[in-house]
Design a protein around this nucleic acid. Structure first.
Length: 316
DNA sequence: CAAGCGCAGCGTGAGAGTCC
DNA sequence: GGACTCTCACGCTGCGCTTG
């Protein structure tokens, strides 16, 4: 059990690390270190609180840091909004400038190819999550997704071309961990992975909206039909049916990896900054489970207990 | 001469590696 | 995280050869 002095030092060190990370860069390794530090402080505070040893001074320091970080998060979000507005304005001005220029077409093509990092991937993301067991859209499916995306596009910058959709699906399968999952748990057999997805879907139950993902149809191509015929499985099989010899730990790891894939597809890396800023705010909200004293009434919103988050975090 | 077979060429899509 | 290049696998097509 860490002393109250050590806990206060941990809190300050964490705040310092967060500020240094923001000031330097936000590479994956730094974010990982920040997450680790946040987790360590949170667990130490929770331990201390559960044993009734959390001192008012530590509580007070936590509240102040929470307030500071919340203010910082507000600034960051405002900054992000401003950057987005500037980007839109710049793009529009550039397009206007180039409209009557000889090089207009060539340059705008280039911008389309390289410049816009925020692809309008909502429909593709949605299709991917609805077909997570076999995220290989046919040519016609891709065209259909593109048609839907482009029909709802507010301007040309939100329109997609066919090749972008092809690349997006290739990259998303690889970067979400879907391809790794395919190799690890289905030995590269896509039909097998589809069966795993169906088993997971059956285990979780609920609707697509509740799960945020679906395995997709079981008759997507010849591979799938072949497996269905050979195994003649019913739709109520479980992971245990697919892996009769596997340990519980293996199955739990599989479930956890699958959830990670879903999370990665749901939230792109560009949203990570906002995500972990929210984590930090949530951290300050979940530290002690008891209410603040009346003298700290102004900090009450920082320390309010969120039962769902708190209970989940305590399980760690 | 038609049918069957094997082979090369080509287009397409996916994966891996990489750049920015 | 989008896009590019390279490589590989696969399916389709056309061509030449063999066989009945």
């Amino acid at each position: 059990m860490r002393s109250q002095e050590e806990l206060c030092m941990d809190l300050l060190a964490f705040e310092n690390l967060l500020l240094n990370t923001l000031a330097s860069n936000t590479q994956e390794t730094h974010l990982g270190r920040l997450h680790t530090a946040a987790e360590r402080v949170r667990c130490a505070i929770l331990d201390s609180d559960e044993q009734g040893k959390l001192a008012p001074t530590t509580r007070h320091l936590g509240a102040r840091i929470g307030q500071r970080l919340e203010r910082l998060a507000q600034l960051l979000r405002a900054e992000q909004r401003e950057v987005n507005m500037m980007r839109t304005t710049t793009r529009n001005e550039l397009r206007e400038l180039l409209q009557n220029s000889n090089i207009a077409r060539e340059t705008s093509d280039n911008i389309q190819d390289k410049g816009d990092a925020s692809l309008n991937a909502g429909k593709m993301r949605s299709w991917f999550l609805k077909n997570l067991g076999y995220p290989f859209p046919t040519r016609s499916a891709k065209k259909s997704i593109l048609a839907e995306t482009n029909a709802e596009a507010k301007d040309n910058s939100e329109c997609l071309v066919y090749n972008q959709a092809v690349l997006w699906f290739i990259n998303t399968r690889r970067r979400s961990g879907w391809t790794t999952f395919l190799r690890s748990y289905a030995k590269g057999d896509k039909a097998m992975l589809l069966e795993i997805a169906w088993a997971l879907q059956h285990e979780q139950g609920g609707t697509h909206e509740q799960r945020c993902w679906s395995a997709g149809p079981r008759t997507v191509d010849g591979v799938t039909r072949q497996l269905m015929c050979s195994q003649a499985r019913q739709n109520t099989f479980t992971l245990r049916d697919l892996f009769p010899e596997a340990s519980e730990r293996f199955l739990n790891e599989l479930r956890s990896d699958w959830e990670q894939i879903v999370e990665r597809i749901k939230v792109g890396a560009k949203d990570k900054i906002g995500e972990w800023v929210n984590d930090v705010i949530r951290l300050s909200e979940t530290l002690p489970s008891s209410r603040p004293s009346s003298s700290n009434a102004g900090e009450a919103h920082i320390w309010r207990t969120c039962p769902e988050v708190t209970s989940r975090n305590r399980d760690c």
